[in-house]
Design a binder for these strands. Structure first.
Length: 505
RNA sequence: GCCAAGGUGGCAGAGUCCGGCCGAACGCAGCGGCCUGCAGAGCCGCCUACCGCCGGUUCAAAUCCGGCCCUUGGCUCCA
């Protein structure tokens, strides 16, 4: 059984075969750092992260590169705003730091490199020169444009017909372009701040000021700035070579961005730019997508604060990466419920494993075979185009098997209960291992976060529970219920069990 | 207008590439039972889907083919 992925280039699900059987070159189109990252970005990050983890699980070495676009008109437009920074680079740096912090809070595996456009201008200039030499690009008034009619495959990713394409880029570029679909590789000096959509930051720095702070670079065509699309080609080639195995990005980037990346790169190298193009679908808010430009987003930092990393990751992987996902209070609450079930079952299994009953010699085939079946389902699901929803379902299957075993007591292979009151420690151990190992593929972590303050809080909760037990023993249930309600009000979930009360924070 | 993706139970969401095991997974909500002082959690069971509409192929279709309707995304910055 091998990994299959849906390739936007062919529109089909294909077996995955990297160029080098042991290594995978993975590039993810990162973000333009002109706004705080929102949950939509997090959804893509988490899915790319899960791909990365799954590829490693399969034994590949993954070279994962994720860029930051730190040269962009939208960044310039924010210069001087709040305390973001006094020039384009400073604003970008502010957001890059925030973004990296958000990424850490989501338990993402680090990429090997996070290249920035500003650090690759020489490579970009080289690439543009190559394209001009090969007659795929032309200079006009200090700007350089890619000639789409010179590249036969133009449109192969998004199935566009060159003749149908109206135009790309700023309106004032049009007169300079030979074909309306030609796009800028290099833009002559100035920044047209008027062209920037400023709907979500009224009162931003005035255009004059912004223009003054837009950095420019020297080039064979005079002072200027790199175009948007060329950066990804230059950076991925610099760090991963001419042909990528996997290129991932948001669905909204298919055209024109990814289409243009292909054109530039393949025109320059005469080689395939990326063998597999995977696209992450977007979040659906009531009836439109979540996006920076629409302003209808929830920031990552707020979401992590409000929920937590495990709940969020459960939520973000509750659908396939390549299908749209509905964002609503209900769908996120449901994810929380799923995660809680996993965690409760895991805690129960670990606790039982440590109890004397677990040492009773009991064999329970049903638990172990349920875990084996779940493992198989999980692996098959992930190999089937990273089907994370199905994978979650397999994890829940383990949780149910644990609970059934703990609840009903062990059974023999005919499903009849043993007389002994014991647990099958081998089965429990395999269940715990499965949860840890497979959960890790989704970036879920069962290792409780026991900080010093949490320990203290736990001690205090136990003290209260001791008092409550005394009240219960005395038949004073009203007082006992009050204590339980009050604890719940503080976020402590109390459960009475045969072995006494237990709680979750 | 052009390109792309999608329409599955009250909600959400797999399955559609490789037709039968799908009268349709997993979960949420709801209902009944067990357990419990009660509650929660958990367990067991139930409930609601002829899989957008019409036609075709086939012994057999949610899954293949054709037509139609609707939704969403892209064609301007966007994960």
């Amino acid at each position: 059984m091998t990994l299959h992925v849906t390739n936007t280039l062919t529109g089909e699900t294909e077996p995955f075969e990297p160029q080098d059987p042991e290594n995978v070159l993975l590039y993810y189109c990162g973000l333009t750092v002109s706004d705080p990252p929102h949950l939509g970005h997090a959804r893509s990050w988490v899915h790319v992260d899960v791909m990365h983890r799954w590829l490693e699980y399969l034994g590949y070495d993954v070279r994962h590169v994720e860029n930051f676009t730190d040269i962009n008109e939208k960044i310039v437009a924010r210069v001087g705003e709040d305390d973001l920074g006094e020039d384009e680079a400073a604003v970008a740096e502010t957001y890059i730091e925030r973004t990296l912090a958000d990424m850490r809070s989501l338990n993402l595996l680090r990429a090997e490199v996070y290249p920035r456009v500003s650090e690759h201008v020489p490579e970009i200039v080289d690439l543009v020169e190559t394209l001009i030499e090969k007659d795929y690009a032309y200079e006009a008034n200090g700007s350089v444009y890619f000639d789409v009619t010179s590249f036969d495959d133009y449109g192969k990713l998004s199935n566009q017909d060159v003749e149908e394409i109206e135009s790309q880029g700023d309106p004032d570029e049009r007169s300079e372009k030979r074909h309306p679909a030609d796009f800028a590789l290099w833009k002559a000096d100035g920044v047209d701040v008027d062209a920037i959509d400023e709907h979500h930051h009224e009162g931003a720095a005035d255009p004059e000021h912004a223009c003054g702070t837009a950095q420019t670079w020297d080039s064979p065509w005079g002072e200027g700035r790199p175009g948007w699309h060329i950066e990804c080609s230059a950076m991925s080639m610099t760090h991963l070579g001419e042909t990528l195995d996997i290129h991932v990005g948001g669905r909204d980037l298919v055209f024109p961005h990814h289409e243009n990346e292909i054109a530039q790169s393949e025109a320059a190298t005469d080689r395939s730019f990326a063998n597999y193009w995977l696209h992450c679908e977007l979040f659906q808010m009531d009836d439109e997508k979540m996006s920076s430009s629409l302003g209808n987003f929830v920031t990552v930092s707020r979401a992590v604060e409000q929920w937590n990393t495990n709940v969020l990751r459960t939520f973000l992987t509750a659908g396939s990466y390549n299908s749209k996902q509905l964002y609503s209070d209900e769908t996120i609450a449901e994810a929380r419920e799923r995660w809680d079930q996993l965690e409760r079952a895991y805690d129960a299994a670990v606790e039982s494993l440590d109890s004397p009953d677990a040492r009773t010699k009991v064999e329970d085939e049903s638990l172990r075979s349920a875990v084996d079946r779940a493992r198989e389902r999980f692996v098959a699901a992930m190999n089937d185009d990273f089907n994370t929803r199905e994978a979650q379902s397999a994890l829940l299957q383990v949780a149910t098997a644990i609970n059934t075993h703990l609840e009903g007591g062990p059974t023999d292979d005919r499903g009849e209960s043993f007389d002994e009151n014991g647990y099958d420690y081998r089965g429990l151990r395999s269940a715990v291992e499965a949860l840890e190992e497979l959960g890790d593929v989704l970036g879920l972590s069962f290792a409780g976060e026991t900080t010093g303050s949490a320990d203290l809080a736990g001690d205090v909760v136990e003290l209260v529970l001791d008092v409550r037990e005394q009240e219960r023993d005395a038949g004073n249930y009203e007082r006992a219920d009050e204590l339980r309600d009050e604890l719940e009000g503080l976020g402590v979930e109390v459960q009475d069990t045969d072995e006494g009360p237990s709680y979750r924070l």
